[in-house]
């Protein structure tokens, strides 16, 4: 049995779009962080994370996403989430992630908001 989160990334100009699939725990969070730091090092000015295929993010996974957010803010970049289930949305708000990162219902809205080019 493995619920390990799969992460895929694609660039749209200087915006990196992430798709996760599966449980975001410490391993899943670390995988996302590794890819996010690589994209920031490659000059991404915005990261859009579509969590549409993730139904559970535990508090350890969220703490790693907060580390990513802090790194994004240090680099004067932007982090946006989309496709959150109501439970993940609620948990992000409880832990304060929503105060520092933008949350959009859909990927298109997130991409438009960060000014992604096709």
């Amino acid at each position: 049995m493995s619920e390990t989160c799969k992460v895929s990334v694609e660039r749209r100009g200087d915006v990196a779009v992430f798709w996760t699939d599966g449980y975001i725990n410490n391993q899943g969070g670390e995988e996302i962080a590794k890819e996010a730091y690589a994209e920031l090092d490659r000059g991404a000015r915005a990261l859009v994370m579509n969590l549409g295929k993730t139904r559970i993010v535990n508090s350890i996974g969220i703490s790693i996403l907060i580390e990513v957010l802090e790194k994004v803010m240090e680099r004067k970049a932007v982090l946006a989430f989309c496709g959150l289930t109501p439970t993940i949305d609620k948990t992000f708000r409880i832990m304060g992630l929503a105060q520092y990162a933008a949350i959009y219902p859909t990927e298109n809205e997130a991409l438009q908001a960060v000014g992604a080019t096709a």
């Binding site: 508090s59 350890i60 969220i62 703490s63 907060i66 580390e67 802090e70 409880i94 832990m95 304060g96 105060q99 520092y100």
Partner: peptide, 15 residues
């Protein structure tokens, strides 16, 4: 825990 402790004091666990 609180968002303030999490973000300003970097105490991310304990939620």
């Amino acid at each position: 825990p609180s968002p303030q402790k999490t973000f300003e004091e970097r105490r991310r666990r304990g939620w």
